[in-house]
Amino acid sequence: MTQSLPTLHPQRWQSVADLANHWCDTDVLPCLAAATGTTSEISGCFHTGRFHEHTEATHNADPIFLIASITKPVVATAALLLIERGQLTLADRVTDYIPEFGRNSKHGVELRHLLTHTSGLPDMLPDNQELRQAHASLERFVERTCEEPLAFPPGRGVLYQSMGFAVLGEIIARVSSKSCAQFIQEELFQPIGMQDSALGAPDEWYEGQSANMLRVTPCVVPESQASGTEWNWNSRYWRQLGAPWGGMLTTAKDLSLFAQFLLRRGITRSGERLLSPAAIDAATRNQLQSMRDVADEERRCRPWGLGWRLNWPAHSANFGDLLGPRTFGHWGATGTVLWIDPDAEIFALILTTLPQEPSGKYLSRLSNTIAAAWQ
């Protein structure tokens, strides 16, 4: 018996839009874009709210969001391309590509540790704010990471680490002889058809009245960034830096195309095989399971793939409560989430500009209503 494709219940999807509209109309959220679909169709996509101060959402423009840490699995996907081509392996040591990384007893860190948050590197550097105030380059962030000690020996714990992806971006650059941003643009975004996406806004986004920057939605910045107009999430510096740990700009439509590419197991809309099923399977299975020195609770209850957070049992944050056991995705500190359920053959994404950590209060609630709209 052939399994029928999932369908979106119109009234239930309308309830998703109604809830989002209510939150924006009552100023609970400034703005929101959401999309859901299957391998072949974006079944629902809308945006609502004020994307610029005192300006209501216009329905003829697709707003661009800073998606923060959803950037990480995109960069991980770029690394998988190089692994497929025989240019990297997960067992390679970081020092094979960045010799200076070995300071302070970091010689044992492998690429797999960067991709699974088991390296022992910090999430943010102790002088993160000072670096941003000085408009530090990505190279400077990597230099500083090379100087830092580890919180624990690699592979013996789990600590969410943005700086691991700073290092991974530098490895991609050194191996490919292109910047990480350029590699991702040419090898992922262009073949997938993501026309309004960039890891760091290029200069041309700022030029002319039709420039893409006019469509970028400003974020509600946390208190720690309130005085940093020259370096916070809304500054030109940060939007152009292209941080591999959180600097991607994109639209709901473009991110939907990326999700569909993964649901199709590495095939683009045009039919091009860009990534192998083997690579996607490796990226989306529990990589902690085979790390015997990682605590059992982490391996069973908070699993990670390669750049992807898997569905954590008894944990509602961001993903909600109604997703299948093989669901994978990621969230972003600016108030964003993307999840993909390969068993149900559906994806969903919610993009806002309101930080919601640690619980993802509105993300998880809307995620539940989206999951319940499929039948």
Rank of each mutant, 00 (worst) to 15 (best):
S256N: 12
A151R: 12
Q182Y: 04
L274I: 02
Q195E: 15
G200Q: 05
S197G: 06
R215V: 00
K178N: 12
F261S: 06
L263H: 03
A252E: 01
Q209M: 07
A252S: 14
V142C: 10
T145R: 06
G164Y: 08
R264W: 00
T250G: 09
Q185Y: 02
W205M: 09
Y237F: 09
S177Q: 15
C180T: 11
A282E: 15
L199E: 04
R140F: 03
R174K: 14
S177N: 14
Q225V: 01
I192H: 11
A211F: 05
R264N: 09
L274A: 07
Y237Q: 03
S177A: 13
F183A: 09
A198K: 02
P149M: 08
F261R: 03
I171P: 11
S177C: 12
V167K: 01
P153K: 05
E272W: 00
E223N: 13
N212M: 12
E230C: 08
R269Q: 15
A198Y: 11
I192N: 10
F141T: 02
R174S: 09
F261Y: 10
E272R: 10
K253D: 12
T145S: 12
Y160I: 07
A201P: 06
Q185M: 10
W231E: 02
G200N: 01
S224H: 09
W238S: 07
P222Q: 05
K253W: 04
R269E: 15
I172F: 08
S162M: 12
N234D: 04
L199P: 03
G164K: 06
S270W: 05
E148I: 06
I184W: 05
R140N: 09
N234T: 04
L241G: 00
K253N: 13
G271I: 02
D203F: 02
G242W: 00
L255T: 04
T268L: 03
P191C: 04
S270L: 10
E272H: 10
A282I: 05
P244R: 00
P277H: 08
V216N: 10
V216A: 13
A283H: 04
R236D: 14
S227D: 15
S235I: 04
G246L: 03
A181C: 05
M248Y: 10
E207Y: 12
G200I: 03
L150Y: 09
E186S: 11
F189M: 13
V142E: 08
A278M: 13
R269V: 05
G228R: 01
P244T: 00
Q260N: 01
G242D: 04
S224A: 14
L255D: 00
G157W: 03
M163W: 11
V167I: 14
P202K: 07
M248D: 00
